[in-house]
Design a protein around this nucleic acid. Sequence first.
DNA 1: CGCGCGATTGAGTAATTTCAAATCTAGTGG
DNA 2: CCACTAGATTTGAAATTACTCAATCGCGCG
Lengths: 188, 188
Amino acid sequence: MSTVLRQHIAAIVSLTDTEFEQVLSYFTTKKLKKHQYLVQEGSEVTQEYFVVSGLLKAAYTNEAGKEHILQFAMEDWWISDYLAYLQQTPAQLNINCLEDTTLLCISIENKKKLCETSHKMEHFFRMKVSSGFVAQQQRILSLLSNDAQSRYELLLSQYPRLFQRVSKTLIAAYLGVSRETLSRFSGK
Amino acid sequence: MSTVLRQHIAAIVSLTDTEFEQVLSYFTTKKLKKHQYLVQEGSEVTQEYFVVSGLLKAAYTNEAGKEHILQFAMEDWWISDYLAYLQQTPAQLNINCLEDTTLLCISIENKKKLCETSHKMEHFFRMKVSSGFVAQQQRILSLLSNDAQSRYELLLSQYPRLFQRVSKTLIAAYLGVSRETLSRFSGK
DNA sequence: CGCGCGATTGAGTAATTTCAAATCTAGTGG
DNA sequence: CCACTAGATTTGAAATTACTCAATCGCGCG
């Protein structure tokens, strides 16, 4: 089960078996059923999560009551309410499971300790967040310069696996269009 | 001049004078005049830049010839085409100066060496990119859930200094609306 | 004084949303 | 196996919003 994490880390830094055991000791395991919440708006966020299996969404509901999806997370991805996690403010997001999910959880304090203890792991996390940063820049550019249909096609080509697992309503909430509009061009 | 960088780093990790001298040795200085390009679309991106003084914009021009602004950078900010920088692909952005600008430049190799040599600096860069990551998440949420007017007001409240230095046309290109639309609500 | 750039305003057009209704689908129990 | 229900998707039509294109305005600078 932890081999998913092992592989994931190995793609960036190489760890010996004992080093990895050490790393793993900073994590706890959590299992959630479909529809269960991992983070609820307003609550405290003390952990960051690595998805071993399953699927989740992180969403923001605005004043008008509309839900917008900030990210999905499937096997191999990290998820949390990073604003709340890093700045220790109440969660602004709801994170819940779209499927039964198994997670590895690391608390802020443990991540801090792990990074202090292990330069390698600090490097790993820096690389991870850097690629996340770049991915988000691409999403911003896509939101600014492409229409909804191109964004749809781009997402479809980048994450075809995702489309087999999430409803079009949620895809629409991720892309920033109404589900009706998405429906009108997703057919063709 | 380098005190700007010193202060900037000190906000996250504390360095001795000699340590900072060491860090500084990985950087070079560059001065550009208003309108000059720092990065041009299609070129290779070998450096990341810290703004000592001045103002720049990083923009993407889509197939339709429309320019969209990914970021501005003023004193104390970092800028580059991070996709091109990290993945070593041709630049997709144009970065140019809106004012005369002084930069501290660090190459990929030097950043790599610096991070290997100094755990503190690796930590610094991780923290920096983490806060950038969160800021971008907020921008994505704003693009998804707020209309252009709220985005305008949010930006105005967050970066009032910026508005004294950039044209409304550029603000519009950052917010993702036409300058005419922005003009219609920025008056009131 | 006149040029040029940025900002504003107007009018028509295109795209998206909203609200409502109809359709389709998967899972449940008889 | 079939009927039934809940949720998701699609479709239609009206209303809203933002865009484009064009013209005008305002101001600083040579």
